[in-house]
Amino acid sequence: MTRTALITGITGQDGYYLSKLLLSKGYRVVGLVPPERQGSVAKLDELANQVEIYSVALTNSEALKTAVQQLQPHEIYNLAAPSFVPDSWRDPLGTLDLITGTATRLLTAIREVGLETRFYQASSSEILGQVQEAPQSENTPFRPKNPYGAAKLHAHWTMVHHRDRYGLFACSGILYNHESPRRPPQFVTRKVALAAASIKLGLSDRLKMGNLDAKRDWGYAGDYVEAMWRMLQSEHPEDYVIGTGNLHTVRDLIATAFASVDLDWQKYVEIDPALLRADEHFQLVANPTKAKQVLGWQPQVSFEALLEKMVQADLDRLQTGSLSLQPFEKLA
């Protein structure tokens, strides 16, 4: 029997890699896409013709219930969220409704329709916020520091309440930074990869950066969606911290990206005081022991291989003309 998976946020980075994984496993993959975002389906590239798109407003409880009733999904992956965390300060209520509202409506639909659908909620290390310990595990207290993190935490607890009160099979993945060639250029990893590629090709000659000592736990998005899928195949619904457990500085990030194209980063990087800001995530690093022991999950792509993937992808885009630097000049 073909299994059906519904995905919100299917046109984002994680939606692409999750769709690719599920299609490879023989799933019928259906993206729940708001009518005003139909044009973004093109971002799925070669997968656009392999997945089904169901047009529905994620703010409409009855419409989502109808979708669940019609599609009878075995699994739902709720990835819907703003793609860039700082944007949540400009629209905190919209962020709350997109993240928490969508989770609540989908969980309610599963319960009211009476299905045994397994539900995955995309949580985030942002719910941990101002951490007092490092590394962080599933037992680390939650202390979000921005509207995005607060909304993700609300959605996380909403999922837990539905699991505890109604017996739904629902899981949350507390994911740390995960990157890929599909990251938008406002993210520092893609900004650096694009700069390395463009400098290598002689299309630019500098990269403006802020705090090079800021540290992050960076992994590969393709590995992290595997963890999402494994959570819904497990015997019991539980929540998991997903990350590499390794911290790298922004300096490491730049050096690794530039080294992948044989460039000395120090010749091209310029510190811009306007980009310096207090780093509030200095010790945000995962302890993924539970995921490794219970799910058998391990990151497969190293930090170095991830950066090489990203730089190579931008080299290819720039050389084939499928990417222009002009829209990103303000990011340099």
Rank of each mutant, 00 (worst) to 15 (best):
H161L: 14
H156I: 03
K200S: 13
Y148C: 00
V160E: 10
Q136C: 14
A170G: 01
P181L: 03
V131S: 01
E133G: 10
T108V: 15
Y220C: 10
S124L: 09
W157V: 12
L201N: 00
I110M: 07
R165W: 05
A151P: 00
H162L: 05
T158Y: 03
S180T: 05
L153N: 02
S125D: 11
N177I: 14
M209N: 09
P147V: 15
A134N: 07
V113N: 10
G210A: 08
A170P: 00
G222V: 10
S204W: 11
A155M: 00
I127H: 12
K191N: 10
H161N: 14
G129T: 13
A195W: 05
A196R: 10
Q130I: 13
S123C: 05
L128E: 00
F119L: 09
R118V: 08
L175N: 13
W157K: 09
G202L: 09
S125E: 09
A196Y: 14
R190S: 10
S172Q: 11
K152D: 01
S137G: 04
G173N: 10
Q121D: 06
L128T: 01
T117G: 03
G222M: 07
L128F: 13
F187D: 07
H156T: 04
Y120T: 06
G149R: 06
L201E: 01
S124A: 10
V188L: 14
L128P: 02
V113W: 13
Y220W: 15
C171T: 12
G149S: 02
Q130D: 13
L212G: 09
T108A: 11
A109Q: 04
E179I: 11
A221E: 01
I110K: 08
S172L: 11
A221I: 04
R216G: 02
K215P: 03
K200C: 11
K191Q: 08
E133V: 15
Q186G: 00
E138A: 02
D164A: 10
V192S: 04
P181K: 02
H154E: 07
A193K: 05
L201A: 01
Q121A: 06
F142C: 10
C171I: 06
